[in-house]
Design a binder for these strands. Structure first.
Length: 204
DNA sequence: GGTAGGATTACG
DNA sequence: GTAATCCTACCT
């Protein structure tokens, strides 16, 4: 019997995004369905966005959308991009510090939920390879934005298994640090992390 | 009130 | 390479 993984708390997330982003690799995102079923995926790719970061939505100050990033750690920040996809972020750091981690890819562990189209089921390990695809698989949209990441909200994070060894240079899985994807500003900031060799990496 | 551009994706 | 599609932020 393996003990249940601890739920990740606000305290743990109240550190800078560039610290949390690599620490979330190997952790699990869990979605509770009304049927009682749970959809789980291991986080394998993240990006950090912080204050003084021109690529961060909160960089130009508070707006109705970005104020979530200034709020306390442990809340969800979900936004619509290109009119058709959602991106899921975990708010990090102290209150009043604009900061979040974008979760870019999951390795799905359980059977995929029934709303995933048959075409995507053909490659289950790629079903959540990308921030938009991840939100489709987990049924995340803006209704789930600005909510605490807790089981009571049907969406939460669980800690990495102690048996999973992730290191920058060695171990079961190698952690790679590189630059972020799709930006027009701060393209050289190396705040993207991913698990080397994961089939779910959105852009290897 | 108008509009440029976007932390994306799938298809050709 | 490029279309799809709509919200946000910023301008007048």
């Amino acid at each position: 019997m393996t003990p249940p993984a601890p739920i990740i708390t606000t305290d743990w997330l109240s550190r800078p995004a560039h610290v949390i982003a690599p620490a979330l690799i190997g952790c699990t995102l869990v979605r509770q369905l009304e049927t009682g079923q749970q959809v789980r995926g291991m986080i394998v790719e993240t990006e950090a966005y912080g204050p003084d970061d021109p690529a961060c939505h909160g960089y130009r100050g508070r707006t109705p959308r970005t104020q979530i990033m200034f709020g306390p750690a442990g809340f969800s920040y979900v936004y619509l991009i290109y009119g058709m996809y959602h991106c899921f972020n975990v708010v990090t750091d102290q209150t009043d510090v604009a900061s979040a981690v974008l979760v870019r890819a999951l390795e799905m562990v359980d059977p995929l939920p029934e709303w995933v189209p048959a075409k995507k089921r053909q490659h289950p390990h790629r079903a959540a390879a990308g921030p938009g695809k991840l939100c489709q698989v987990m049924n995340i949209d803006r209704q789930l934005s600005d909510r605490p990441l807790l089981p009571s909200e049907s969406l939460w994070l669980e800690a990495r298994s102690p048996s999973l060894q992730i290191h920058f240079d060695q171990g079961d899985r190698v952690l790679v640090q590189t630059t972020r994807i799709g930006l027009s500003q701060a393209q050289d900031v190396p705040w993207r992390w991913y698990l080397q060799g994961s089939p779910a990496i959105s852009k290897p």
